[in-house]
Design a protein around this nucleic acid. Structure first.
Length: 433
RNA sequence: UCCGCGUUAGCUCAAUGGUAGAGCAUGCGGCUGUUAACCGCAGGGUUGCAGGUUCGAGUCCUGCACGCGGAGCCA
C-alpha cells in the first residue's frame, strides 16, 4: 500500500497523532536552522516545520534541497497552529523525496495570460484554479442532485449529429465514413424533446460545440450545457423551474464551498441575494429600460452584450426576460397566442454583468405550424422528419431550457473570463494543451 | 471578419534615437517562526520575424506572424 495515511483536509481529526502525508511542495520558506514547507495534496494545504536540531541531518538536507512542485512524503505530528494556513501544522519527523522538480515554470510571482494558458496543465495546480475547479465540480453535482431528486431522468443526446439544431450557428464539420459530412452537436435539445415524450421529464448534460468566430470573455468553442425538457410544462412552469434551479445551485455552493469562494475573494453578499422570486420582465419592458438608459434600441433586435449588462444592472438577482420577437428566435419556439409576433421564450441574465446564462422556451407542439416554421427558416424538412414525428404521435405542450455551465461557474466564482471555468478551454485561437 | 492595444532574460516588466536593467525563478552563502519571507553574491539577451530610414534603432516607418481586449453571434 502506498497511499497516504491521511489527507490534509482531515488533519483536524488527528491532532497530537503521527501521520504520513503525500503531496507536492507548494512553496518553501526558510530561516536558517528552521524550514517551512507548504505541502498541497489536492485536498488542502499544510505547513510542515522542519527544525534542524529535531531531525536527522539527511532529513534537513532534503528540506534544504527540495524545490517547488517536487513530490514528497512527510511523517510528522499534527499540531493546532493559528498562525498557519488551514489552522494546523505538522512537526516533521521524517521526509522522503519522491521526485525532484526542476525549474517549475509557474513561479510565485505574476504571470501573463498567454504563458499561463500555454502551461494550463500545470496552472491547474495553483490555489485559485484548484478552488475554481472544486466549485465547478460542486455546481455539476448540484445540477444532477436537483434534477435527480425531482423525477427527471438523465437522457444523453448524441454528440455527432447529421444537421444543425437551429440552422444558424456555425458547426464543426467532420467526415463520417460513407455518409458524408456530420457535425458536432451545438445542443441536445431536439433529442431531449423525444426523451420528454418517453420519460416525462428529462435532462441532458454534456459538451456542446460552436464554431462561431467569437473572441470575447464570454465564449468558448467547446462548452458544457445542461438542458432539461419537460412534457406538460408551459412557459410559466418553465420559468418557475429555472428560478428554483438557479437558487438551488447558488445556495448550495454558498453552503458547501465557502472556503473556495473566500480563496477567490468572491463578494458572497451578492450571491446571498440569489433567492426566489426573481424579477420577470417582458422583452418590451427590457427595451423600455434600455431606452431610459439612453440606448437607441430598435424593437425587434436581439440584445447585445452591452444591452444585457444594462438590463441586469437594474436588479440584484438574475432577471428573467420573456416573450421575445419571434423573428430573432429559433424555429421550434411556440408563438404567444396573445401576440403571434412574440415567441414564448425566456432568457435569464445573471447579475453583475455576467449576461445570459439560461435560454429556454415553450416548444411549438402543432405539426402544421412547425412545418411552416421549418419552411420559413429555409431548413431541410427531411432532416427534421423524426422531430416532426414527436408532433404526429401524441404531441403535448412542453418546454425546456439550457444552462451554460462555464458561464454559471464564471458568475458564481466572479471570474473575469470563461477560460478559467473549465480545465482545458477551447477557444478560436487555442486548442492546446 | 472588423476595430484597438501589445510582443525586450525562463517569467513579470523598465529603458529621451546614443554602453539593454530590475524583481521573481535558478546556483552559492547567511538567518530557529517564515506567510508571494528577508539579506549578500553569481550566471542568464539574435529586444517576435523580414525589410527600410539614420552616423547610430528595443525606440521611427512598412509588411507579416502571434497574443490580448472589444464588436458581430451566442450559452
Amino acid at each position: 500500500m502506498i497511499k497516504p495515511s491521511v489527507y490534509i483536509k482531515d488533519l483536524s481529526k488527528h491532532v497530537g497523532e503521527e501521520v504520513i502525508l503525500k503531496g507536492w511542495l507548494y512553496n518553501k520558506r526558510s530561516s536558517g536552522k528552521i524550514k517551512f514547507l507548504i505541502m498541497r495534496d489536492g485536498s488542502g494545504y499544510v505547513q510542515c516545520v522542519v527544525v534542524k536540531n529535531n531531525v536527522d541531518d539527511n532529513v534537513f538536507e532534503i528540506a534544504d534541497k527540495i524545490t517547488q512542485e517536487s513530490s514528497f512524503e512527510v511523517k510528522g505530528k499534527v499540531r493546532e497552529e493559528k498562525r498557519a494556513i488551514g489552522g494546523y501544522e505538522l512537526d516533521v519527523i521524517d521526509l522522503k523525496l519522491i521526485s525532484l522538480s526542476q525549474n517549475y515554470p509557474i513561479t510565485p510571482k505574476e504571470h501573463g495570460i498567454e504563458f499561463l494558458m500555454d502551461n494550463r496543465h500545470l496552472w491547474v495546480r495553483s490555489k485559485k484554479q484548484v478552488a475554481i475547479l472544486k466549485i465547478r465540480h460542486r455546481i455539476v453535482k448540484a445540477i444532477r442532485d436537483f434534477f435527480d431528486s425531482r423525477g427527471f431522468v438523465l437522457f444523453d443526446p448524441p454528440i455527432i449529429t447529421p444537421n444543425a439544431c437551429e440552422g444558424t450557428s456555425t458547426l464543426f464539420e467532420i467526415d463520417y465514413f460513407d455518409l458524408g459530412k456530420a457535425y458536432l452537436t451545438q445542443s441536445g435539445q431536439l433529442y431531449a424533446e423525444s426523451g420528454a415524450m418517453a420519460l416525462g421529464k428529462v435532462y441532458s448534460f454534456g459538451p456542446t460545440f460552436r464554431a462561431e468566430k467569437s473572441k470575447t470573455r464570454r465564449h468558448l468553442t467547446e462548452f458544457w450545457m445542461v438542458e432539461p425538457e419537460m412534457a406538460f410544462y408551459d412557459l410559466d412552469d418553465n420559468m418557475d423551474l429555472a428560478e428554483e434551479f438557479l437558487e438551488y445551485i447558488v445556495q448550495t455552493v454558498l453552503e458547501e464551498r465557502r472556503e473556495e469562494l473566500k480563496e477567490l475573494e468572491r463578494d458572497t453578499s451578492k450571491l446571498e441575494k440569489v433567492v426566489r422570486p426573481f424579477p420577470r420582465i417582458t422583452y418590451d419592458e427590457a427595451v423600455e429600460i434600455l431606452r431610459k438608459n439612453g440606448v437607441d434600441f430598435q424593437w425587434g433586435n436581439d440584445f447585445g452584450g452591452g444591452d444585457e449588462t444594462i438590463i441586469s444592472e437594474q436588479f440584484d438577482k438574475p432577471v428573467m426576460v420573456h416573450r421575445y420577437p419571434a423573428e430573432v428566435k429559433a424555429f421550434y419556439m411556440k408563438r404567444d397566442p396573445q401576440n403571434p409576433k412574440l415567441a414564448l421564450a425566456v432568457d435569464v441574465l445573471a447579475p453583475e454583468g455576467y449576461g445570459e446564462i439560461i435560454g429556454g422556451s415553450q416548444r411549438e407542439d402543432d405539426l402544421e405550424t412547425l412545418i411552416q416554421r421549418i419552411k420559413e427558416h429555409n431548413l431541410p424538412q427531411e432532416y427534421f422528419e423524426w422531430y416532426l414525428d414527436l408532433r404526429r404521435y401524441g404531441s403535448v405542450p412542453h418546454s425546456g431550457f439550457g444552462l451554460g455551465l462555464e458561464r454559471t461557474v464564471s458568475w458564481i466564482c466572479g471570474l473575469e473570463h470563461l477560460r478559467e471555468a473549465i480545465p482545458f478551454p477551447r477557444m478560436i485561437y487555442r486548442n492546446t494543451p
